[in-house]
Nucleic acid binder design. Structure first.
Length: 593
RNA sequence: GGGCCGGUAGUUCAAUCGGUUAGAGCACCGCCCUGUCACGGCGGAAGUUGCGGGUUCGACUCCCGUCCGGCCCGCCA
């Protein structure tokens, strides 16, 4: 580089700089060599500019420019000049000017890139992952990481303004049995013992409340060793917050402000004044899931009672066994072919574990075309018609199974068909709080388990129900749902140790186990714990929504593949035997069968 | 753990029913070119068809296994 230093970025060079001498630095986006004159599109962070090498201006720079190739790193000095009228390119930024180079310094050469560094590289994602650095040079990831930064800043500013303070909590922490599988870190000084990476800073932030910090936040890394999805990475970032001496309303008010600030600062989007609320029960009834996209206009209808004594044995027996029947009515669905319905049925069976998909098509004359019609009494047909508002042109899709599976099947059909058939309200954002979740739910083996996590406080007037009807206890839990994606969740926590102990007892922990596993929290609750509660936003998912990404990999600098590998670094990887020895570890031979 | 889709040159794709030497665009390399901006012209190089096995006179193609990428179910408070 010598003594020459960059004096401007490409973005700063416009026709107000005509006549001035500037020094630019960046990468060769493209070279167009005309023999006598050579054009190079110079790219730097966020912009680019055409620079031109002419032998009549600088013989030696022109000579050197012949050696330039894509992605070479260069420094150029020259004069900003207007382009002649016939060479102006109105399709690009600064297409009316160019830099006439007087001096070229090649700072570094580069091997040819595996794909074009352009808006749309048009290559397979595995190629992009393997060459992540090149991919990171492309505009989509540049924008995403910029948006991510803006989101960090917006969150920090919003919470700081609300008097929250940022406190770090440990990454090396203790394994606790609840929730996801932990990532473990072996301890060298305590052979056989392990740290765990935090799934979230949940207990730590509660202890900070006990310690009197009153308003905490952290942009915290979280780790969960579970199978991945497009919207799930093994490590991710949360905007984690907790506050004392508040109830649900005060927390929701904070969340509303933070959410709006983020949307406004990052996406330039002004959300409605008040975020809509819907109860868990209503969400499940109408949409079949606890994170509905309410822009989709299709809704489910409960029909269990209709089939309680039906001749349709498949349904009646399901109901006898405690299952339910629900229907997804789709009106004006003449365009939905039999073939499409068959495809839906096979999807339901294969992907969702359903037994089948019963359906009815109401013909123009009101007749029911349906594999189940012959089992239905007129009375039942009438009840179904009334409940679903079926009319000629309607297609009714039925699911009969356990409550969970019925809802899973129909919510999937509702989403897929809603988009496919265009039954979606024309507004870009659907933001809502889902509230009044149950505290507990029944596990498959009939035992009682927590619905979200074991520290959620029950609604105050339901505390008495802990003794008599735990499954009926409402929680102070709330989720933020945007466009059908769970963006975050939170609750009030148990600040009374007797309530917390009772809940752990209901969850099946003995007194000893509770003390062993959560003793430091239970102790904390006995040294003057204030009422407190909080929330955690999934930062990655928010960025993904705001930049319109398809997966978290689109908004993460160095993401993992679906099988948890970093293809760039090659992690995870084997380690040296003496490293294992030092940790007191020994690998078990792989069993092959 | 399970279902589905995919894997051919650096890259994006093609290759008829299993049949000649696996082709093409872009990228790359060389030469030419003073106004391009996806520059252009001429020429060239580039392949363990993911890997292993099988069937066959013959396999990119069919079969089995396996690895890798993706989407989903389970799982993930």
């Amino acid at each position: 580089m010598g003594s020459l230093r960059r004096t401007a970025s490409c973005a700063e060079v416009d026709n107000s700089k005509i006549g001035q001498e500037v020094v630019l630095a960046g990468w060769v986006q493209r070279r167009r060599d005309h023999g006598g004159v050579i054009f190079v599109d110079l790219r730097d962070r966020g912009s680019f500019l055409q620079v031109v090498f002419r032998p009549d201006i600088a013989e030696s720079a022109h000579e050197h420019a012949q050696n330039l190739r894509s992605e070479y790193v260069i420094l150029v000095k020259g004069k900003v000049e207007p382009r002649s009228e016939d060479t102006v390119n109105p399709n690009i930024r600064a297409g009316d000017i160019e830099l006439a180079v007087t001096e070229l310094r090649i700072l570094n050469s580069a091997t040819p890139p595996p794909f074009a560094i352009e808006e749309d590289a048009g290559v397979d994602e595995s190629v992009r992952m393997r060459h992540r650095i090149h991919d990171l040079r492309r505009p989509p990831l540049q924008r995403a990481l910029r948006a991510r930064h803006n989101l960090f800043q917006a969150a920090r500013a919003a919470l700081s303004d609300l008097d929250f303070i940022e406190i770090e909590t440990p990454i090396l922490t203790k394994s606790t049995p609840e929730g996801a599988r932990d990532f473990l870190v072996p301890s060298r000084s305590h052979p056989g013992d392990f740290y765990a990476l935090p799934q979230s800073p949940q207990i730590m932030k509660q202890l900070l409340m006990v310690a009197g910090y009153e308003r905490y936040f952290q942009l915290s890394r979280c780790f969960r060793d579970e199978d991945l999805r497009a919207d799930r990475q093994p490590e991710f970032t949360q905007i984690d917050l907790e506050m004392s001496f508040v109830g649900e309303e005060e927390i929701l008010a904070v969340l509303e402000q933070v959410t709006k600030r983020i949307f406004s600062d990052v996406g330039g989007i002004e959300l409605d004044a008040n975020i809509k609320r819907i109860s868990f029960v209503e969400a499940m009834d109408r949409y079949g899931c606890d994170k509905p996209d309410t822009r989709i206009q299709l809704e489910l209808v409960e029909l269990t009672e209709v089939f309680r004594s039906s001749e349709l044995r498949a349904f009646r027996m399901g109901v006898d066994k405690g299952g339910i029947v629900k229907c997804l009515p789709i009106h004006d669905a003449q365009g939905m072919s039999r073939g499409r319905i068959d495809k839906l049925e096979s999807m339901v069976k294969k992907e969702l574990g359903g037994k089948g998909l019963a359906w009815v098509r109401v013909m123009d004359d009101g007749e029911w075309q349906s594999p189940i019609a012959k089992f239905l009494s007129d009375q039942e047909k009438e009840a179904i018609t009334k409940a679903t508002e079926a009319r000629p042109g309607s297609v009714l899709l039925f699911a009969s199974d356990t409550k969970a599976r019925v809802n899973a099947i129909l919510t999937r059909l509702r989403t897929d068909l809603g988009w496919e058939l265009g039954r979606v309200e024309d507004r870009p954002w659907d933001v809502l709080f889902v509230v009044s979740f149950p505290l507990f739910e029944e596990a498959e083996d009939g035992s009682i388990t927590y619905a979200h996590q074991p520290f959620v406080a029950p609604v105050e007037e339901d505390i008495a129900l802990l003794e008599t009807d735990p499954l009926g206890v409402r929680a102070t839990h709330y989720d933020l749902v945007i466009n059908g994606v769970e963006i975050g969740s939170g609750s009030l926590r148990n600040h009374r140790s007797d309530v917390q102990r009772k809940i752990l007892e209901i969850l099946g922990y003995s007194e000893e186990e509770s003390r062993e596993l959560f003793g430091f929290l239970l102790d904390g609750l006995e040294i003057g714990a204030p009422p407190h509660g909080g929330f955690a936003f999934g930062l990655d998912r928010m960025v993904m929504m705001l930049v319109g990404g398809e997966s978290l990999r689109d908004v993460t600098a160095f993401p993992k593949t679906q099988r948890g590998q970093d293809l760039l670094m090659g992690a995870p990887s084997v380690v040296a035997l003496d490293q294992l020895e030092e940790l007191g570890l020994q690998l078990r031979p792989q069993e092959d069968e």
